[in-house]
């Protein structure tokens, strides 16, 4: 790894820009992101910036239950994030559907079957410290080139699982 690549790798850890994606959340998880920008948690110390557009993001925070309608939106927005990128799943909803599992319009399956998730932040909702920790971990993965999308690109990982979670019968 030459010097410039090293500097860029360090910059990926020191400047993670995040973008929120609400996939059908009850808004609890999203509310817990806002304190990160407040004086108490001050995410800017880690170089974290909240951006509205996926084009500027490095890390996508996906919160909420996956619904039939949000699946396409997740795939679309994930595809718009320029590489290298990481995904952080916020709360219990993306992993299991949480209390909404089994509802008619909810995909009762894990977010991992839609897009590759790098860090899971459990909780309902997770505490802001936990979200901050999740972002920091994802940023470290970006530095090491170890996020799932980066690994898939460098062909170190086995082929990605296909998005096999479709409509529930």
């Amino acid at each position: 790894m030459n010097l410039i690549e090293r500097v860029i790798a360090i910059s990926r850890r020191r400047s993670p820009w995040i973008c929120r994606l609400n996939a059908g959340s009850c808004n609890g998880c999203d509310i817990e992101i806002t304190p990160l920008l407040s004086p108490r948690y001050d995410a800017e110390q880690l170089g974290i910036e909240l951006h509205g557009t996926p084009k500027h993001a490095d890390i996508v925070l996906i919160s909420g239950t996956l619904t039939l309608r949000s699946r396409e939106a997740i795939l679309d927005i994930y595809a718009q994030v320029p590489n290298p990128k990481a995904v952080v799943a916020l709360g219990s909803c993306p992993s299991s559907g949480n209390v909404f599992a089994g509802s008619p319009l909810v995909l009762s399956c894990s977010l991992d079957t839609v897009v590759p998730v790098d860090v899971w932040v459990p909780g309902c909702p997770p505490r802001p410290q936990a979200i901050l920790d999740g972002i920091a971990r994802a940023a470290k993965l970006l530095e090491d080139g170890a996020t799932k999308s980066q690994l898939a690109k460098s062909r170190l990982a086995r082929s990605q699982p296909e998005s096999r979670c479709g409509r529930l019968s």
Partner: peptide, 21 residues
């Protein structure tokens, strides 16, 4: 009332963007 970004933050931002797609 926050601590604010580290000294090299604008540099890191630009370097990171240079390394992106």
């Amino acid at each position: 009332g926050r601590q604010g970004p580290p000294f090299f933050q604008p540099f890191f931002d630009v370097m990171k963007l240079l390394g992106k797609e």
